[in-house]
């Protein structure tokens, strides 16, 4: 046996490669107990819409704000406003947009687009 160290190094790299493929691709760690903040943007939008609907139902802002906190958005007002803009642009269901607007008001955010939407919907 002339060169055991290079052979061991080759084996090590090969093993490392195999293990990374197994660990990251074939059997990756699966998280079943995730948080709301890890939801896909589509579901985050749906979550916010539902928080707005529930707020509309019970008028409990503390509860609604607590639920929104789960999204861990650094600027919640801006995030909600952006979601409203995206929803209007995507021609989303106006009821959903209204639920979000219901959240934007206590968060103190609005925009010309939102005002124009509200005006168009009420007219």
């Amino acid at each position: 046996m002339k060169r055991p160290v290079p052979l061991a190094a080759v084996g090590f790299l090969l093993g490392l490669g195999i293990a990374l493929v197994l660990g990251w691709v074939v059997w990756p760690v699966e998280y079943y107990d995730t948080e709301v903040l890890f939801l896909h943007p589509t579901y985050k939008f749906e979550y916010a819409v539902m928080v707005g609907a529930a707020y509309e139902l019970d008028g409990d802002w503390e509860r609604a704000a607590g639920r929104l906190l789960a999204l861990e958005e650094p600027e919640m007002g801006v995030w909600v406003r952006d979601q409203i803009h995206l929803a209007i642009a995507a021609n989303e269901d106006p009821v959903k947009i209204q639920h979000l607007i219901g959240l934007a008001r206590p968060l103190g955010v609005t925009s010309e687009i939102i005002e124009a939407f509200v005006e168009a919907e009420s007219g």
């Binding site: 052979l7 084996g11 090590f12 093993g15 195999i18 293990a19 660990g23």
Partner: peptide, 19 residues
Amino acid sequence: LPIIAGLVLGVALGLILAW
């Protein structure tokens, strides 16, 4: 033997890293 030893060590370290 060295290649097998390296392989085992690599797999073990790789799985620790990946998981």
